[in-house]
Design a binder for these strands. Structure first.
Lengths: 264, 264
DNA sequence: TGCTGTGAAACAGTTCACAGCG
DNA sequence: CGCTGTGAACTGTTTCACAGCA
């Protein structure tokens, strides 16, 4: 996951649930693919499968946008593409700046998905003077000195931070001061921003850690199944996941603390 | 968020809520920073601020792990670092392979956050023969032919896919067949995988689209507020996003969804 | 008849507020 | 007294199941 936004609480403008908003881009992608294959209509069942969700959820999601389907038939692909694009604000052009042009910043600059959906990379910015002028993704990197000017001149309201963690907070402050109100943060830091500014974060190591958690759980179950006969906690297969101890902690509360293992 | 996992339905082995799991890495990061500064204890309030959540949520989260705090005092930093690491499975070593070594793959390979938390990049794999042998992040890229062997030899259970969208499904199938059971997918595609395999996806363009939605909402409110008094449609200060050809009704054409991040 | 649109039920996650322990 | 741990209330999300329209 990679999520998180500093939200204002009650701004239910036209009440589309956040969870639904997060899925619209997914539907849009699936619909775009259908559109390219000139498929005229699609049922909730088919589209849901393409988007990787279940059909009831999809229908409920679309119901928040309005009634765009036809009973007994399905949804008109082109029409839905348009409606979702409009709802997401993709019928307008969003200039974006990317700050921090390392490997990640370069990857983002080259990412086709940006340009293809209403987003336009207005500038690439890096603090390293040696980077200035170098072309990345066919565009010269500009020095951080220019940050404010670039943002103002281009009316940029969305900034992408791909700097090292240490620079991220400061960069965000400059972006915001210059007029940016939405930030996509790839730096592994919690940004603190004023109200009214949205931040979403994408954190690679967090995603991996979540996977590790589930992976460990699988290993534990496996081991538990194996150990159904031998009650002795032996070092198990891959990596020797600590199997026993944690399990009984299940329902905390009544019994004392008694942590399974003490720290070093 | 960029999140999503193909979840197995009934595997509720032990109730630690998914939302809590997703925050543990955040707490861990904040705690690690405190630990480095040799701070011995921390209150839920302080730690919550550092992690960017509220303290009630943090306490509730920790309560699922057990009772690791001391009333009137707070939490022991070192102890908590250990407990969370253990819960996440970070006390063991997780070999990881990265498939698709373009800009993004290289960024991932160079990403310090991997190595620092129990993850070890076991191999970099790319389908382009021209890449084979090239060093990236101090490690030679290996050809995709070797994929199965590498996974088996290293006992890899986590794979990272950073290929173009078109290759992702096939890569995932090979990874899974060879023994991988968790995948972090950066390609803008819905992977379909068998039960028991976890997939998390990180999708740059989806994140941006979600931001655009909120950005648009802000612009709408602003305009409404302004219109209440002075109906002057001038370029307003912050961010004035141009309303481009509002007419592009059936936007869509050849923009190829599925933009690739990198190599072939 | 087939599929959408949607109330209502079930579930998950968050916040409140306070009892109780160190 | 201060801060944790946690029931209970609440808010948000998903799923169910079916009425109703093309």
């Amino acid at each position: 996951m990679a999520t998180g936004r500093t939200h204002r609480p009650a701004t239910r403008s036209r009440g589309i649930p956040e969870a639904t908003v997060a899925r619209l881009p997914l539907y849009l992608r699936a619909l775009t693919a259908l559109s390219e294959r000139s498929v005229p209509t699609v049922s909730s069942e088919e589209l849901a499968a393409a988007a990787g969700v279940n059909s009831a959820k999809l229908r409920k999601d679309f119901s928040y946008l309005g009634s765009y389907g036809t009973r007994g038939v399905g949804y008109d692909v082109e029409y839905l593409v348009y409606q979702i694009s409009r709802e997401l604000g993709l019928t307008q052009d969003w200039p974006v700046v990317i700050v921090g042009i390392g490997n990640l910043g370069a990857a983002l600059a080259n990412y086709g998905g940006f340009a293809s959906r209403g987003f336009r990379v207005a500038a690439l910015i890096d603090a390293d003077p040696a980077m200035a002028g170098k072309p990345v993704a066919g565009m010269p990197v500009q020095h951080a000195d220019q940050l404010e000017k670039i943002i103002e001149d281009n009316g940029v309201s969305i900034g992408v931070i791909a700097t090292p963690a240490g620079a991220a907070q400061q960069v965000s402050e400059r972006l915001i001061a210059a007029g940016v109100t939405s930030i996509l943060n790839f730096a592994p830091t919690v940004l603190s921003v004023p109200d009214g500014v949205d931040v979403r974060k994408v954190d690679l190591s967090i995603e991996l850690q979540i996977l590790a958690f589930h992976e460990q759980r699988k290993a534990g179950e496996e081991a538990a199944a194996e150990a159904a006969s031998s009650p002795s906690p032996t070092a198990s297969g891959v990596g020797g996941a600590p199997v026993g101890g944690a399990e009984d902690a299940g329902r905390k509360g009544p019994d004392g603390d008694v942590p399974a293992v003490m720290p070093a």
